[in-house]
Simulated assay, not measured.
Amino acid sequence: MKLPRLRVAATAIALVLVAGPALSQTPMDDPLDARDAKRVDRMEKVVRELRSIVFQMKDTGKPVVVQPADTDARMQELANRVGDLEQSLTRINGALDSTAHELDEARKANAELAAQIKALNDRLAAAEQKAAAPAAPAAPAVDDADVPPPKASASDAFSKARELMLAGDYDGAESAFGAYVHDYPDGARTPEARYWWGKTLTAKGDNARAASAYIGAIRGWPKTGWAPDAVAELARSLVALKKPDDACAALGELHKRYPKAPAAVTARATTTSRQAKCAG
């Protein structure tokens, strides 16, 4: 069935080929317009395709599948569509990138806002706790009469005690020197204060406390003007306490520690030695 059709087609092509030169040699009075020119182009294209079919059939002897004449147009249309799709994809990708960037920025803003809200909540909680905490009780008012007078300096306290002793107020001097020894146990003049404190106690006949005061005064055997007299007064207190041996031991140290003691002190020490019946 295909061969008669092909023969007809071949015959038509031959006629066209024969008539073609004749037609091309026929003069035309008017030039072709654009539409006619397109029609001629299509006819020539069809002729070329038919010629190709004929020669292909002649060479191979196989049936020929005729492709539509507008294949190139369709291919171009498909290419255009593909180009449009690529442009659309490009625009979509750009929009997606922009959306992703905006989403990241929104997340960062949300995180910062959450941090600010947390800080504000912490501050509010702290303020509420502070407001709820009970107020500290006010300090009780202090009457000026209840405030003790400022404590005198060590120098002032020593001077005040000496003034009382020189004035003959042995009770007051005894209390003042005793307070000085209590308040300034490691003071520079505390040993001397102990010596004068012992003097006031001797004057009052309190020999036991006087002996204790003298012992504290001469501890370490200080090289001072009052130290020899303190040893002599200690020996006298020990004799009064019925401790002659201890008195003699103190007098022995007096001559050894203070060989240049004043004459008045040496004379009093000699008298006390006789009273204690010290040897030699």
Rank of each mutant, 00 (worst) to 15 (best):
residue 97 D to P: 00
residue 51 R to W: 15
residue 174 E to H: 03
residue 240 A to R: 04
residue 222 P to C: 06
residue 240 A to Y: 01
residue 34 A to G: 01
residue 216 G to T: 08
residue 80 N to Y: 00
residue 204 K to D: 06
residue 111 A to G: 07
residue 63 P to A: 07
residue 141 A to P: 02
residue 224 T to V: 08
residue 108 K to M: 11
residue 27 P to L: 10
residue 215 I to S: 12
residue 98 S to C: 01
residue 108 K to D: 14
residue 274 R to C: 01
residue 143 D to V: 09
residue 67 Q to D: 14
residue 151 K to E: 15
residue 233 E to T: 01
residue 140 P to F: 02
residue 187 G to V: 13
residue 59 D to R: 07
residue 129 Q to S: 08
residue 191 P to E: 02
residue 227 A to K: 07
residue 45 K to W: 06
residue 106 A to I: 05
residue 280 G to R: 12
residue 154 A to P: 15
residue 113 L to Q: 14
residue 89 L to Q: 07
residue 61 G to A: 05
residue 275 Q to P: 00
residue 235 A to W: 04
residue 132 A to L: 14
residue 249 A to L: 04
residue 31 P to S: 14
residue 269 A to V: 03
residue 89 L to W: 06
residue 50 L to G: 12
residue 261 A to L: 13
residue 257 R to M: 03
residue 103 L to D: 14
residue 215 I to M: 14
residue 182 H to V: 05
residue 124 L to H: 02
residue 130 K to Y: 09
residue 29 D to A: 11
residue 277 K to V: 09
residue 122 D to K: 06
residue 90 T to S: 12
residue 3 L to C: 04
residue 164 L to A: 15
residue 19 A to P: 07
residue 33 D to A: 11
residue 103 L to M: 12
residue 58 K to L: 09
residue 134 P to Q: 15
residue 137 P to M: 12
residue 234 L to F: 13
residue 170 Y to R: 05
residue 32 L to F: 11
residue 56 Q to E: 03
residue 200 T to S: 13
residue 31 P to K: 04
residue 149 P to N: 12
residue 42 R to K: 09
residue 18 V to M: 14
residue 219 R to N: 04
residue 26 T to E: 11
residue 12 A to H: 10
residue 184 Y to W: 00
residue 172 G to W: 01
residue 62 K to I: 00
residue 270 T to E: 10
residue 207 N to S: 10
residue 251 L to F: 00
residue 52 S to Q: 02
residue 243 K to C: 04
residue 53 I to G: 08
residue 82 V to D: 09
residue 159 S to F: 09
residue 224 T to D: 07
residue 279 A to E: 11
residue 186 D to S: 15
residue 58 K to F: 00
residue 125 A to E: 13
residue 26 T to K: 04
residue 175 S to Y: 00
residue 77 E to Y: 03
residue 278 C to V: 09
residue 35 R to I: 14
residue 217 A to D: 03
residue 152 A to L: 15
residue 247 A to V: 05
residue 123 R to T: 07
residue 80 N to T: 07
residue 43 M to W: 05
residue 157 A to K: 07
residue 60 T to V: 00
residue 166 L to M: 08
residue 70 D to V: 10
residue 269 A to T: 03
residue 144 D to Y: 09
residue 96 L to Q: 07
residue 118 K to S: 12
residue 247 A to W: 05
residue 170 Y to A: 02
residue 207 N to T: 05
residue 51 R to A: 15
residue 34 A to L: 03
residue 125 A to F: 09
residue 81 R to Y: 12
residue 138 A to I: 10
residue 173 A to N: 08
residue 99 T to D: 11
residue 183 D to G: 04
residue 244 P to K: 01
residue 119 A to Q: 14
residue 184 Y to N: 00
residue 97 D to T: 07
residue 88 S to Y: 10
residue 137 P to R: 11
residue 79 A to H: 13
residue 228 P to T: 05
residue 158 F to C: 06
residue 19 A to Y: 13
residue 235 A to C: 02
residue 102 E to A: 15
residue 161 A to N: 10
residue 193 A to F: 02
residue 90 T to R: 09
residue 268 R to P: 02
residue 78 L to V: 01
residue 106 A to M: 09
